[in-house]
Amino acid sequence: MDSNRLRSTLARPIALFASWLIGASAYAGDVERGRYLVEALTACDNCHTPRGVSGYDLANRFSGGAQTFSDKTYIVRGSNISPDRETGVGGWTDEELRAAIVDGVSREGRLAPVMPSDSYKPLTASDLDAIIAFLRSARPIRAPLQTPQRRNGEWAPHPMPGAATAFDDASLADKNTRGLYVASLARCMSCHAEEIDGAPDYRDRLGSGGKIFRNAAGVVVASNITSHAVKGVGAWSDDELKRAITEGVSRDGAPLRPPMSTLSKAHFSKLSRDDLDALIAWIRTIPPKE
Rank of each mutant, 00 (worst) to 15 (best):
C191V: 10
G90N: 01
L21A: 10
G90D: 04
A99F: 10
N152F: 15
L6K: 08
M160H: 08
S223P: 00
K121L: 11
N176R: 14
R142Y: 15
M160K: 09
S171W: 04
S82L: 10
P258Y: 02
R7G: 06
R98N: 07
G91E: 03
S106D: 03
P116D: 00
L185A: 05
D94G: 04
D57A: 12
S208P: 05
W20G: 09
G88W: 11
G29L: 11
S106F: 09
A138S: 13
R7H: 12
C44N: 05
Q146H: 12
P157E: 07
G209I: 11
V89N: 00
K242T: 07
N152T: 15
D71P: 00
V53E: 13
Y120P: 01
A278T: 07
G65T: 09
L206H: 04
H192P: 01
A216G: 10
P144N: 04
F17L: 14
D45G: 04
V31E: 06
D252L: 06
A66W: 12
S208T: 13
A66S: 14
A43E: 06
K265I: 14
D252K: 05
P258E: 05
M160V: 14
D238R: 09
V53C: 02
C44A: 04
A99K: 13
S184A: 15
G55I: 14
L145Q: 11
S261E: 06
P258W: 04
Y36F: 12
R61A: 00
D174M: 08
E96M: 10
R251E: 13
G104Q: 02
P148T: 05
G52S: 14
G153C: 06
A11L: 06
I196Q: 09
M189P: 08
Q67A: 15
R35T: 13
D174R: 09
S171G: 01
G91A: 12
N152Y: 15
L97W: 10
G209P: 01
K121T: 11
L279A: 08
R273A: 15
I14M: 02
P13K: 01
A281H: 08
A170P: 03
S70Q: 14
G88H: 08
S126W: 00
D84S: 05
S63M: 01
S184H: 06
G162Q: 03
T9M: 03
I196T: 14
D129A: 15
I75L: 12
P288M: 02
Q146V: 10
S19G: 14
N215Y: 06
D275S: 05
G104V: 11
F134E: 02
R139V: 15
R107T: 12
I81M: 07
G29Q: 10
W155H: 03
N4I: 13
S269R: 02
E240S: 07
S63V: 05
R142H: 15
T246N: 02
K289R: 15
L241V: 13
H158P: 01
W92K: 06
R243W: 03
Y202D: 02
E39D: 09
E247A: 13
R33M: 08
Y74N: 03
Q149H: 14
R110F: 11
D238C: 02
T49D: 02
A278N: 00
T124M: 04
T177H: 08
D30T: 13
A130Y: 08
D103Y: 09
Y36N: 03
S126L: 11
R33V: 11
A99I: 10
S208R: 14
